[in-house]
Structure formats: C-alpha cells, structure tokens
Write a protein that binds this DNA or RNA. Structure first.
Lengths: 124, 124
DNA sequence: ATGAATCGATTACGCCCGTAATCGAATGAG
DNA sequence: CTCATTCGATTACGGGCGTAATCGATTCAT
C-alpha cells in the first residue's frame, strides 16, 4: 500500500510539468512553469522542488552540478487520491450526486455527452 | 460576486452540521459531530466555530449566554467553489476526463447508471 | 585567474490548520 | 451564598504552505 505524499496546490503545478516530461533540470522546469504562468518566481520553484524531494514525491540524479528531477509518484495515483478525497469531503462519498452536480451545471458539447454515455453503456 | 471564505477540511464537517439544521447551539453541534465520529473533542469544535465566525462563514445570535450559530454561506455555493477548484487543480479544468475518471473506476449500480444517462439525455 | 552568474541548501516569515488548554464571566446546584 | 460547571474568548504550539532571500560552492566568461 503505497502512501501518496500530500501534494499542495502549487506543488501540484510542478508535478504536472514532470509528469508531462522527465527527467528535467530545474531550469527547464522553471521555464515551463513561467511559460504557462508569468508569475512564477524561480526561487519559489526551487523551494517547491526541494520540498517535493523531501516528501519523496520527486527524486533526482546529479548531472554535474545540476539535478535532473523525476517523479517518484505516479500521476494516476495522485489523481485517484485527490479525487477520492474530494468525493468524500464535499459529497460525503456519494458518487451519483457528485456526477450530477457537474453534469447539471457545466456546459457539455453533444460530443462530450455522447462520449460519456458510451462509457456508461460499457459499464452495464 | 460573493467571495466564499476558504473552509478547511475539519471546518467543513462543522458547516455540514449547520447546513443540515440551523440555528444550533454549540453543545448541540458538538453532540451531532461526536455522534458521527467519536473522536471530536469539544474544545476543538469550539475553536472551529470561532474561526468560522471570524472568517464569516458562520453568524450567530445570542440566546442568553450561549450562541446559536447559523451559516452565512450557502452549501451550494461552497460545493460549487470546491468542485470548480478540484476540477481545475486535478484535471486542468477539463470536465469530460474528470467524469470519465470516476465513471471508469467507481462501482455504479444500474440504477445509478440509468439516472445519470437520464440527466445526460435531458441536456441534449 | 578573478569576478559574475548559477546551483542546490539553508533560513526566513507570516498565515493557516489541527489540536487543545487556559481564562474570566456567568449560571446552576445545593 | 458559594462552589463547580459551562460559555465564549484568548492563547498555545508544532507543522504545512506560499513566497522568497541568503549562503557557500562551483563554473563560466573574459
């Protein structure tokens, strides 16, 4: 039973970069973060990298003086953990009301609707 | 545009009690919390009530020496805020992959499946 | 080779959170 | 009346988080 370390809001942004491509050096990670959101300060990103290493969400190998970081936890596992936690917390663990919440108030293209129905059909 | 105060994990439990029934005195709130989960310490619950008042998630009226607490934010608004935040954070705001995630890996009764399909039909 | 730039490590700091204990006022029991 | 109980308010405290600056070591440019 692997226990997923708790990954905070901003840390999650960093993880997403490394789930998309890894291993990467800090500089490259920061480049990709600022590409999406101007407001990223390099020092802040470095701090988050250190914290993620400390909590064993990231590992690294040395490449000369620099580090190449890579995920130690799988995105799918983190998504599952976050999803289950959300479902419990906000909807008391009840799946259908949660799904209904989104279906009822989010716009969906008919394409998306068909897609989802197909998934439901396959479940029965 | 009402800005929903940020409600933490344990604070959410307290809010749920008051969304279910209000106004309630602290003692009654604590009784309902411990009814669901033995581990609630009264002092802790009091602290949370104070914090929720301070952040304007709860209001109260005095009933003699005691307070009767009631929500100042609607459950629906908090659920919406938490849901949107979850969707953005974990699924980058993409609805269908999020719905697919749950539909694909949670058990659903055929009743639940039909229910959800019905909602989808009504959307088209 | 010497100063500037860069790297990760360490330190900083204020706020939130979970978890309570303490305090002063008021009330209830006897 | 007086003491114990109970109320909300205040204080506590260690850890996480967002945000970053500083430090010591190394490397790069000139």
């Amino acid at each position: 039973m692997k226990s997923i370390p708790k990954i905070s809001e901003t840390e999650w942004e960093v993880m997403k970069v490394l789930w998309t491509a890894s291993p990467l050096a800090a500089g490259e990670i920061i480049a990709r973060l600022t590409a999406q959101d101007e407001a990223w300060h390099p020092k802040t990103a470095k701090t988050l990298l250190s914290r993620l290493v400390k909590k064993k969400a990231l590992g690294f190998e040395k490449d000369g003086r620099a580090y190449l970081y890579h995920p130690l936890v799988k995105e799918a596992d983190c998504v599952k953990a976050a999803s289950d936690s959300f479902l419990d917390r906000v909807f008391g663990g009840s799946l259908t009301p949660m799904l209904a919440h989104f279906v009822e108030r989010k716009k969906m293209s008919s394409e998306q609707i068909r897609e989802l129905k197909r998934l439901l059909d396959r479940k029965e």
